[in-house]
Design a protein around this nucleic acid. Structure first.
Length: 950
RNA sequence: GGGUGCUUAGCUCAGUUGGCUAGAGCAUCGCCCUUACAAGGCGAGGGUCGCAGGUUCGAGCCCUGCAGCACCCACCA
């Protein structure tokens, strides 16, 4: 027997342990001759940061993946859910650097080798956190094959891919403008730069013409970059300046002369129409420079016009020996902000500042450091992306890869068709070292190892080679995830069995970072798409729709929802490590207001069911505690219903004895409903509509099984007059329905279903081939089209209407539900009479009927409150119970509703074009309804007249 | 500037090729500790489906325009 109360904590821990120890998460590698083999099904986990911890996004993402994986496993597919973690280069390195900072050290104090050791240590220390938390969620991942992006095999795959791409000319090294993070001292890709509008200023600066005829005024948001100007551009069509093209300007503060060039980039409508060109510090300017670099006046500029003025810290650099005073001494060493102030002041002093005004501008910041990103000239490695993007676009166009919801393909196309070469080198230490070596002359050699390079190029052991200090962008290794985790470049059994994978489950935020790159790399190296479907889910937001973030203090930890948390530790957790004490105070206050009693423990199943229920397509989800509370209650409901079933079946004859078996209409009805539900749930899951699946399970369990079937079963189970055969039939139906329901719900609530199933299984017998050790390997229910039972459904619906009619009268007349009443029935057909006879135990039990008297002549009836079941009237004598006025009001309400309805239908049917053009079935439906409503109306009106006359 | 999504009950959301009286959960209001469950049972109230047009016999759903919200991409120095 189950415990009296549902306690998620007690059942969850031990079941997970059991599942994992038994090896049930591992995929079957070969087709099973006995089982219906559905082929391979595989999902790759989006690898979380190895040193990270679980957040709501992971919770959501994994709840969906596990539901799919458990469903397919139960369907008999050879199912693999591949686990693993990501080294998350910059993010992880930053964490360790922050630890060092607390000790007053930098990574340079340790040196590269010791620093990397330290990161590995940190990984060892905190690396188990997230995988432990994934286990708490019940995730059925194949842990025996867990991978890490920097383990030996995956590193090998990374080098292999790099070398092959390089040999094909798809990886190259070049000096270009990159997004430079002056705090982290590394290049980052376009995707890692977040531009947001900020308040700034626009400065108008005068550049004097060398011919003494005046000056041009240029506007800029970044005056300090003027030290690197190589020209001023005007639009060739601009009448105001056309005659000045080719003239020279004196670049203030430097004494350098720069030309006026004609370029479309200059918009005559904007500002003064004159643009300063700083090719080494602005992407657009660099483009202009490219167009004009061969013109004599530009080519004669220092460095051909491409003048870098910054250090890696974005401070003004010193002059090189051969540069003379290219950079004026006054500014050297100043940080870009100080330099700006100084330059503006100096220009003003010289009368060259024409004005300054407030200006909103988009400021690019590094997504990790928050530092303002600087366009900066450096040597970097790039992937030539065009040739890779083309087949990747085609794979989606031809439907080999399908986005769910479909509209995300537009986002994908948009980016892929405008894609830029991918800067893959990072000037950090934690990551895959670029497999390239340089000799003293700077020649580059690329190979899988230094030895391979030496062998290939015939370099002797004493020939000095130095490996490129840079590491690869984290996403480079992530891009290989779908095949590298399966053993590539080896041709392993797992690779053969599970690539291409079935579906990728992820958020829209990494479509570019990850999804697109996996598609490109998969097609390139496997010659096949990495997955067939991409299911894109929304973001988990807080109850108000705000993004969860540490700084807003509105983060919910999935583990806290599972285990519960007291207010005090919750506040402590939310305010820990806050930089600003004032912010911490505000968050503490807000948390105390929102969770005055902390967060109660809801359990994993409730959390997972909530995620499933909220997983509507193409929409972010607002996580409201009310929802999870509701689904915790649902778990409780299932628990208690199961207790009831067990109470009545354990130790009883559930039909296994071979004794005579009789199935009641209720038994057949719930069985029919179970088939319908099974069909909807399967259809919903197959269509990635987890919300609909959850809803169907919830509705069946609560509103059908608990509210009606268990109640209808009671008179049979406890009734004196019910036959043994009927009791056996009901017991069998109870057990069978519950057992099937548990399997149906298992992918969404793995723990509670397993716990209960273990108790129910022995009673259910092996009739459904469910004799196994665990529900997670039991077959998923199949809907039998023959399971529909229209007769039973009609009869039970009639019973329900009868009961509802009586209850409604009681409810509205404030008669206690438990009070038994004599009930009269008039205008009963033969079928009604038959059903009344059969349903008496149900009616007595659920409608609390004291007696049910069939009137052959309605005129015999005393004054009564009335309810209709089709044409049949249910009459409850009013004497002493029912208020005349209240009953009249009730009748009026019904009459008004019916009249309105009838009016609408008549209008429709009077419209010749409706009768003419609408499908016959629709018209007939309306006609039937009119008849029905008309009869009902007549009954109510007659009743009203009768009552009113009293 | 380009794009995507959203707007349905007090709140959070369903509503799948257009067709019964637009549904659910939560919240609200009554009546109930009925022997599985008060984390419960029974009943009730609550919506001119963002606005304005159009197509259609018929529109929450399709088309056009507008408004508001959210997000993505690009960017004028």
């Amino acid at each position: 027997m189950l415990d009296k109360t549902y306690d998620p904590h007690r059942i969850e821990a031990h079941w997970y342990q059991r599942w994992e120890d038994a090896g049930w998460f591992a995929p079957r590698m070969t087709p099973d001759a006995d089982a219906a083999d559905g082929g391979a099904y595989c999902i790759m986990i989006p690898p979380p940061n190895v040193t990270g911890s679980l957040h709501m996004g992971h919770g959501f993402n994994n709840a969906i993946m596990d539901a799919l994986v458990r469903y397919h496993r139960m369907c008999g597919d050879r199912t693999l859910w591949q686990p693993g973690t990501d080294h998350a280069g910059i993010a992880t390195q930053m964490v360790v650097e922050r630890q060092l900072e607390a000790e007053g050290k930098t990574r340079h104090d340790l040196g590269r080798h010791a620093f990397i050791d330290r990161v590995w240590n940190w990984k060892g220390e905190s690396g188990g956190t997230i995988t432990r938390q994934l286990r708490r969620l019940g995730s059925s991942l194949d842990w025996q094959h867990e991978r890490f992006t920097m383990d030996e095999g995956l590193s090998n795959a990374v080098r292999e891919v790099f070398v092959r791409l390089f040999e094909e000319g798809l990886i190259y090294r070049g000096k270009r403008l990159v997004n430079w993070d002056p705090v982290l001292h590394t290049a980052v890709s376009d995707l890692e730069v977040i531009s947001e509008e900020e308040s700034g200023h626009m400065w108008d600066m005068r550049y004097p013409l060398t011919n003494g005829t005046g000056h041009l005024t240029v506007s800029t948001t970044r005056p300090e970059t003027m030290l690197g100007d190589c020209a001023v551009a005007v639009n060739p069509e601009d009448e105001r300046y056309r005659h000045l093209i080719g003239e020279l300007l004196e670049l203030p503060l430097t004494g350098r002369r720069i030309p006026i060039v004609a370029d479309e980039h200059a918009d005559p409508e904007f500002g003064t129409g004159c643009v300063k060109i700083t090719p080494a510090h602005d992407f657009n300017d660099h483009g202009v420079w490219t167009n004009h670099r061969d013109e004599k006046q530009i080519a004669e500029q220092p460095h051909g016009g491409l003048i870098n003025i910054f250090t890696a810290d974005a401070a003004i650099r010193a002059n090189e020996p051969d540069e003379g005073d290219l950079i004026p001494a006054a500014y050297i060493g100043l940080d870009r902000i100080d330099a700006r102030k100084r330059i503006v002041a100096d220009l003003e002093a010289q009368g060259l500042l024409a004005g300054v005004r407030d200006h909103k501008l988009m400021v690019p910041r590094g997504d990790r450091s928050g530092a303002v990103i600087e366009p900066y000239l450096t040597d970097q490695w790039y992937v030539k992306i065009g040739p890779l993007a083309e087949p990747a676009i085609e794979a989606v166009e031809t439907g080999r890869i399908r986005f769910v919801p479909d509209n995300w393909k537009n986002t994908y196309y948009e980016w892929m068709r405008n894609i830029q070469d991918w800067c893959i080198s990072r000037q950090i230490w934690w990551g895959h070292r670029i497999p390239a070596w340089y000799d003293a002359e700077g020649n580059v050699y690329v190979g899988r190892s230094e030895q391979e390079v030496r062998d290939k190029h015939g370099l002797s052991a004493d020939f000095a080679l130095e490996q490129d200090p840079d590491v690869l962008d984290t996403w480079f290794s992530s891009a290989l995830w779908p095949f590298s985790t399966l053993g590539w470049p080896e041709d392993t059994d797992r690779l053969k069995a599970f690539y291409p994978t079935s579906v990728l489950i992820t958020g829209f935020d990494i479509i570019f970072f990850w999804v697109a790159r996996m598609i490109m790399m998969g097609l390139k190296f496997m010659d096949e798409v990495p997955f067939h479907d991409v299911y894109i889910h929304g973001l988990v937001r807080d109850a108000h729709g705000d993004k969860m973030s540490k700084s807003k203090g509105n983060v919910l930890d999935p583990i806290d929802l599972i285990d519960g948390i007291e207010l005090k530790p919750l506040v402590e957790k939310r305010t820990r490590g806050m930089m600003q004490p004032r912010l911490a105070e505000k968050i503490a206050k807000q948390t105390r207001r929102e969770f005055p009693d902390g967060i109660p423990a809801f359990g994993t199943d409730a959390l997972r069911f909530t995620f499933a229920a909220l997983a509507t397509t193409g929409r972010d989800i607002k996580f409201d505690l009310g929802r999870i509370e509701g689904y915790r209650n649902f778990c409780n409901k299932l628990w208690n219903a199961s207790r009831y079933v067990l109470m009545n079946t354990e130790g009883e004859d559930c039909g296994g004895s071979g004794g005579e078996l009789e199935l009641s209409a209720a038994d057949r009805w719930i069985t029919a409903r179970l088939h319908t539900t099974t069909a909807s749930v399967r259809e919903a899951i197959d269509g990635y509509r987890f919300d609909l699946a959850a809803q169907a399970i919830y509705e069946f369990t609560w509103s059908q099984f608990c509210d009606w079937y268990l109640e209808l079963a009671k008179p049979v189970l406890t009734g004196e007059q019910a036959s043994e055969a009927a009791k056996r039939g009901t017991r069998q139906t109870l057990v069978h329905t519950l057992e099937t329901l548990l399997r149906l719900a298992h992918p969404f609530m793995p723990f509670i279903t397993e716990e209960i199933w273990q108790k129910v299984k022995p009673l259910a017998g092996a009739s459904d081939g469910v004799g196994g050790e665990t529900i997670m390997l039991a077959p998923y229910p199949v809907a039998d089209p023959a399971g529909a039972d229209p007769d039973a459904v009609a009869e039970i619906e009639w019973v329900q209407h009868f009961i509802l009619g009586v209850r409604r009268i009681k409810g509205e007349m404030n008669i206690p539900p438990g009070k038994t009443l004599p009930v009269l029935v008039a205008n009963a057909s033969d079928r009604d009479r038959r059903w009344i006879e059969m349903a008496r135990p149900y009616l007595d039990f659920l409608a609390k009927t004291e007696s049910v008297t069939i009137l052959d002549d309605e005129s015999e009836a005393p004054e009564s409150a009335i309810a209709l079941v089709g044409d049949m009237k249910i009459l409850i004598p009013m004497a002493g119970l029912i208020d005349k006025d209240a009953e009249l009001k009730r009748l009026d309400k019904g009459i008004t509703r019916l009249r309105g309805d009838i009016e609408r239908i008549e209008k429709k049917l009077d419209n010749p074009s409706f009768v003419d053009k609408a499908p016959a079935a629709v018209v007939q439906k309306e006609r039937d309804r009119l008849t029905e409503q008309g009869a009902a109306l007549a009954q109510l009106v007659a009743q009203k007249t009768k009552i009113a006359a009293l």
